[in-house]
Structure formats: structure tokens, C-alpha cells
């Protein structure tokens, strides 16, 4: 018997990538959260966060986009779509980083807040720093890993997964969700799901980020380093929380294979996909269709998927 769960409603910001290229990550994350009693309620109106936090100190224009998003959380409370809930959950590592850093800047500077509030005179609310940006992983940690473990129905026993953090979850230090040098949050999650975390030296190395557009080759090399080091450490799969890291590590395997013929493809999972699988959720929510390196063979070999069942999207 599964423990009875009381649903909590929390405002949720998806970001563009999870609505578009990586919608399979969103499906699994929402379903996994729901299984834990977290109903992530999408903001009724939202804009792109800007994707990259602007470092220029005098260009406030770049900080308006995230501020709009904070105001929507206030509006959700005003309109009773959530009750007294000023946490805003996101799981895209890029969005998370931009939102939390902007929030930090606005909380620290009354002058910046005033300027932005004044500029945004069409808004019905002003922003004073009330919203709290939370990454889904942090929310899981605060629930307690034992709670996650309790929900597991098909432990991922024997699955060797290398957690890959990249940059945006951990840096800069004062907005990161874990120790920037020795993070453990993904390892804890993997352990709760019954999987075996594989430590490897490049788990904090940058994947190349947006260089993937103008400079595929460079990103292929970076991804090759990361993936092959994980494989050497014994990993059968990689997991990450950033859709861009996931894209680079997964889809650049095409170029890697051309450049390094000895390379064997390795599946890259969004952390929530592993949760959905371990929680025994219906296969449609796993979102395994949008991958480059085929994840199904590995999962089927390990017995987490019925190899014969037709999978969503093929």
C-alpha cells in the first residue's frame, strides 16, 4: 500500500525549453512530483526568464523579465490559485539560476526594485522580494530522502548512474542548491531511488552550454570528455537537471561517434525520468521518445521496462 498523500499546491515556472524541446522532461517531473503530493501549478501567465543572468550592473532592463515572473506568483496568491504560497518551483537549472540570482539582486537593492516597479507601471502589483525560488531537487531534499524512498515501487537496483551537475545548479555559491565543490544532492536522490551513484571527476565541468549552436565541435569534445570519464568510472547512464546539459551530453553523441569511432553511446536521463520509473508510474510519462542515445535498451535489460510493450512515441 502506498502511503496516503496530502496534495500541496505550489506555483511552478516551466520555462520555454520544458514547454518545447524538452517537454518529455516536464511530463516526467510533473508526474513524479504529483506522486509525492506536490501539485505544481503552472503560472497562468509567464514570459521567458531571459535564460542567462545579466551581469551588467547598470542594465536593469534585463532583470524585468524575471521580475514579471515573481509578480505572477503574487497574482496567483491574490487570485487564490494557491494559498499563501510564495515559493516558486522550477526544475530547469538555467531558469533556476536566472530567477534566484535576480531575486537576490532585487532583495538586496531597494533602488533596483523601485526602478523596475516604476517602469512596470502596467502591473497591478509591485515586487518587494517576497518570492522564494526553489529547485525541485531542493524541495525533495526538504521532504526527506526517506519520503522519496518510501514512494519507490520499482527500485533501480543495479543501475549505475553518474550524476552530472554542470554549472547552473551550484554556482555562484550563494545561490547554489548544494556545496559547489562537493555536491551530493543528485547522489542522495539516486540512492533513494535504489540506483547506484557513480562518482567521476568531471561532474562539475561545463558542458559548453550555448556554444552548442555556433560551435558544435567544441561541445562535442567537452561532452566526449565528460561522458567517457563517466563511462570509465563505470556509469551506464548519466543524469542531470539541466535541459541544455542533457541536450549537449545526449545529442552531441552524434558528432562524438563520428569523431571517436570507439565511443559507445550512453543514455542521458533527466533526474525526474528516473524518479518516474522508480515510482512505477505509467510508461507514457517517462518521456523516453525525445532522446538521441536510446535509453530503452538499458532500461529493458535491467527489467525496468517491459521490452515488448509499445512505448510512447516509439
Amino acid at each position: 500500500m502506498l502511503p496516503q498523500v496530502v496534495m500541496i499546491q505550489i506555483p511552478y515556472y516551466p520555462g520555454c525549453t520544458l514547454k518545447n524541446k524538452a517537454s518529455n522532461f516536464e511530463t516526467s517531473a510533473l508526474a513524479a512530483a504529483r506522486a509525492l503530493g506536490l501539485e505544481l501549478v503552472e503560472l497562468p501567465r509567464w514570459n521567458c526568464c531571459g535564460a542567462v543572468f545579466s551581469l551588467s550592473s547598470d542594465d536593469l532592463m534585463r532583470h524585468i523579465a524575471p521580475t514579471n515572473i515573481f509578480l505572477r506568483v503574487q497574482e496567483m496568491n491574490r487570485d487564490h490559485l494557491v494559498e499563501d504560497e510564495y515559493r516558486l518551483v522550477t526544475f530547469c537549472a538555467m531558469c533556476f539560476n536566472v530567477l534566484r540570482r535576480t531575486n537576490q539582486r532585487l532583495r538586496e537593492s531597494l533602488e533596483d526594485r523601485n526602478k523596475i516597479n516604476d517602469f512596470s507601471y502596467l502591473e497591478t502589483e509591485t515586487y518587494q522580494g517576497r518570492v522564494e525560488i526553489v529547485h525541485l531537487l531542493e524541495l525533495l531534499r526538504s521532504m526527506g530522502w526517506d519520503k522519496i524512498q518510501e514512494r519507490v515501487q520499482k527500485p533501480l537496483t543495479g543501475l549505475k548512474v553518474a550524476p552530472y551537475y554542470g554549472c547552473m545548479l551550484l554556482r555562484p555559491k550563494d545561490v547554489g542548491i548544494d556545496d559547489p565543490e562537493r555536491p551530493t544532492i543528485l547522489e542522495e536522490l539516486l540512492r533513494s531511488l535504489g540506483a547506484e551513484p557513480v562518482d567521476f571527476p568531471l561532474k562539475l565541468r561545463c558542458c559548453g552550454s550555448y556554444q552548442t549552436v555556433p560551435n558544435k565541435d567544441l561541445v562535442a569534445d567537452l561532452a566526449y570528455d565528460i561522458l567517457s570519464r563517466a563511462q570509465k568510472a563505470g556509469a551506464e547512464a548519466i543524469t542531470t537537471s539541466c535541459p541544455l546539459c542533457a541536450f549537449n551530453l545526449d545529442f552531441r553523441q552524434k558528432e562524438i561517434q563520428q569523431k571517436y569511432p570507439m565511443f559507445l553511446p550512453i543514455p542521458v536521463f533527466y533526474f525526474s525520468q528516473l524518479m518516474a520509473i522508480a515510482f512505477g508510474l505509467p510508461q507514457e510519462v517517462f518521456g523516453l521518445a525525445g532522446h538521441y542515445a536510446n535509453p530503452k535498451t538499458l532500461l529493458a535489460t535491467k527489467g525496468y521496462l517491459q521490452a515488448t510493450s509499445p512505448l510512447e512515441g516509439g
Binding site: 514570459n47 531571459g50 532592463m61
Partner: peptide, 22 residues
């Protein structure tokens, strides 16, 4: 797009221009 909402401010049709662009 910067999500600055300047377009919405000027629209004579009172459209949520930024929202449709976003």
C-alpha cells in the same frame, strides 16, 4: 524580446502584446 512590456503599454487595442510575443 526582453519581456519589458513596452509594447503592451502603447497598444491602442489593449492587447497583451508581450504575452502573445512570449
Amino acid at each position: 524580446c526582453l519581456s519589458c512590456n513596452t509594447c503592451t503599454k502603447i497598444c491602442p487595442q489593449d492587447l497583451q502584446v508581450m504575452d502573445y510575443i512570449q
